[in-house]
Design a protein around this nucleic acid. Sequence first.
DNA 1: ACGTTTGCTGCCAACGTTTGCAATCGCTTC
DNA 2: GAAGCGATTGCAAACGTTGGCAGCAAACGT
Lengths: 338, 338
Amino acid sequence: MVGIEDIARDIGMSASTVSRALRDLPAVSEKTKEIVRAAADRLGYVRSAAASGLVTGRTMAISLVVPSVSLWFYSQVIEGVDSQLREADYDMALVNLGGVGVERQRAFRRSLLRHRGDAVLALCLDFSDEEREELRQTRLPVIVVGTPVSGLRFVGIDEVAAGAQATQHLIDLGHRDILHITGGAEERLGLSLRVPQGRRWGYEQALKAAGITPNPARVVEGRFSMEYSRTAIDTLIESGETMPTAIFAASDEMAFGAILSLNHHGLDVPGDVSVIGIDDHEMSSSFYLTTLAQRPFDQGVHGAQILLDELCGKPAVRTSRVLPVHLVTRGSTAPVTR
Amino acid sequence: MVGIEDIARDIGMSASTVSRALRDLPAVSEKTKEIVRAAADRLGYVRSAAASGLVTGRTMAISLVVPSVSLWFYSQVIEGVDSQLREADYDMALVNLGGVGVERQRAFRRSLLRHRGDAVLALCLDFSDEEREELRQTRLPVIVVGTPVSGLRFVGIDEVAAGAQATQHLIDLGHRDILHITGGAEERLGLSLRVPQGRRWGYEQALKAAGITPNPARVVEGRFSMEYSRTAIDTLIESGETMPTAIFAASDEMAFGAILSLNHHGLDVPGDVSVIGIDDHEMSSSFYLTTLAQRPFDQGVHGAQILLDELCGKPAVRTSRVLPVHLVTRGSTAPVTR
DNA sequence: ACGTTTGCTGCCAACGTTTGCAATCGCTTC
DNA sequence: GAAGCGATTGCAAACGTTGGCAGCAAACGT
């Protein structure tokens, strides 16, 4: 491994000059910088992150803590965060906190506290009091994306408003019997329940505001997955109960499942049943799904930017940031006919 | 920040003993270990990855290089890799190499060569000769998952065989006019073309073996996305051309798009057209899609395990590993009727 | 001519671990 | 009782970089 000293020896200079030249500090003459850079290139030098991290106390990376990478929302946020990190020349330490209990504990302590990153961006996780305290003790800048956590800065959307707006769209179309498929019953815990709860509250609020009494039987507890929601609607249809005229799915993926189920049973969307989701998943256009669009990529961008700014010494943003959502009308919703 | 010396001072021992105790080395008495662990816990000690990395030359992390995180296949591999890393107490440095040119160059050099990880696992990337050479020079153990790269170990499936097997399934059902939707024309380059090409070759081979002359007009060049394939089939149907009796999509997501398009135009799957994909995407069951299942999670597990074994000092595996695929028959394929 | 500034460079002490080697201690063994 | 041994522990030298401080020219002002 060729180090800074090797370069110094090669060109007959001191290691500190080489170090400064490579970091493009102003105290080095332009001529020297070029000599150094040339030598570094020629010798194939690569800076040891460990060594420079040791002395500066900075890793030039940020830790991204996620409950999973295989859900659309998470992967989008990750891409957004990544785009900012690349620009700032930061690396990303990905910590998958999926699961519960000991395993989670271990992953948490190991990766976060081991100072793999200079800041922490957490996704849709409910931190226990203990975890929050440990996080605080590390004194790292922290931000959460997707789900507010008390005491921590947050970037995301207003779930309640989103749920209400989606429901309102259906109400505006004349629907009064609206089924809501909610999520959060996943077996793999650790992700926050506040998202599905918020959307559900929004749903109920919108109904009440329109003078409709929320009917608990019209709320299906489910998971944020297509399959779960598909079978839920299958069951509903096959039970022979009267169908609602509209369905508000807590996520687009759940809406897809509902649409497939309805189509499979010969019901037309939106002719027989209107369907609306939340997300604007990349597949939503293919389903002609009307949805309340959020931009998780942007949420990642904003979250990362706030952390990076703080690491650059800019004054810390202490407030949360609520990003807008907007209705994307495609073909899956229509005025009520029954 | 409390360090090893603080603990040593606290319990009246030397730093080296503390270091050894915390690493559970045999040269330390059990009693001492307990005292040290207790003190470390009490003081809230956390090992500096930079310092220990500096002296050992190991980061206890591996770099995972991906072209994107938001495709199903990639996210599954990531989860698989992660599961192994957690067990081995390794961290993950995620390097998103999405994009081309300078940006890619920078990301490549920065993260890989900066020695963020002790080994590199690369996903479905075509490395340039230059990149391969740089990789080689780092002397890090490297493995590629998803797409073979000459000179590097590989974990994945036999794409040609998979393509042939999928096609053969349709042939066995009596189909002779089989459309193939292929991928690889994504605008975001950098990911390998070998996957779609392999599948296509398999398709052509299977046709020839069955005495059917491959018809270039029956191959649609597309992208690995649902939307692209949906519009491709839309166009085909609306052009009024005779429809094939079966469609072999190079990925499940593309198959979904095809199914939606067919259904939307009143065509029954599999009544009018059979559809088969490759992947076994988590949504495939909801689409009742017959597909050739691969297990990207397992591919990640195997790839990670090979690297971890090597880092543990076990003799390096020099051979590639081809994992099996298997046909999952659901409802989207049926004997030909026309 | 002589201080003083300015611009650049070198020296050296950190940073927090790990690890080879030496030292210590309590025993056993001859 | 001396020597030897094994089990523990301590000492000190790395590891590769950074950054405060000092040094040293050349340029400047008087």
